[in-house]
């Protein structure tokens, strides 16, 4: 029985990895006001989402000045910070997203 359950878990994992191409991405971009840096980050992230995750992502842009409580809850230190909440693992990408490749790696859309 134990082996059977283990097998099921393994199968589930394999199925999940097959499905990875079709996973829904939940992203949040925290910025501090509409500075040039914030705008650059928003632009880059939107472009990447449209190019790589068209139709299967939700992106929320949050101004920490407006929502300081969220900054605390999400453990935001730096701005801008892009958080990949789903799929796991959770990842934080900080900066103005100047290096697109690094962002892609951070979002697990490209392997290192």
């Amino acid at each position: 029985m134990t082996t059977k359950r283990a097998q099921t878990a393994l199968e589930a994992l394999e199925a999940a990895s097959r499905d990875i191409g079709g996973q829904i991405y939940t992203l949040r971009l925290y910025v501090a006001g509409l500075t040039t840096r914030s705008q650059e980050a928003i632009r880059t992230v939107t472009t990447i989402c449209e190019e790589h995750l068209a139709g299967r992502y939700s992106l929320e842009v949050i101004d920490i000045y407006q929502h300081p409580v969220l900054a605390k809850g999400e453990q935001i230190i730096a701005a801008p910070t892009l958080i990949k909440k789903l799929p796991l693992p959770l990842r934080k990408i900080i900066g103005n997203m100047a290096d697109k490749d690094k962002v892609l790696v951070g979002l697990d859309l490209r392997s290192k």
Binding site: Y30, A71, I77, T81, R91, D99
Partner: peptide, 20 residues
Amino acid sequence: SEIEETGEYDLEGLFVRLDS
């Protein structure tokens, strides 16, 4: 391990939290 850096940033998140 959760953090990836790309480009410029500041610690405004920390400031906001302290300030609030």
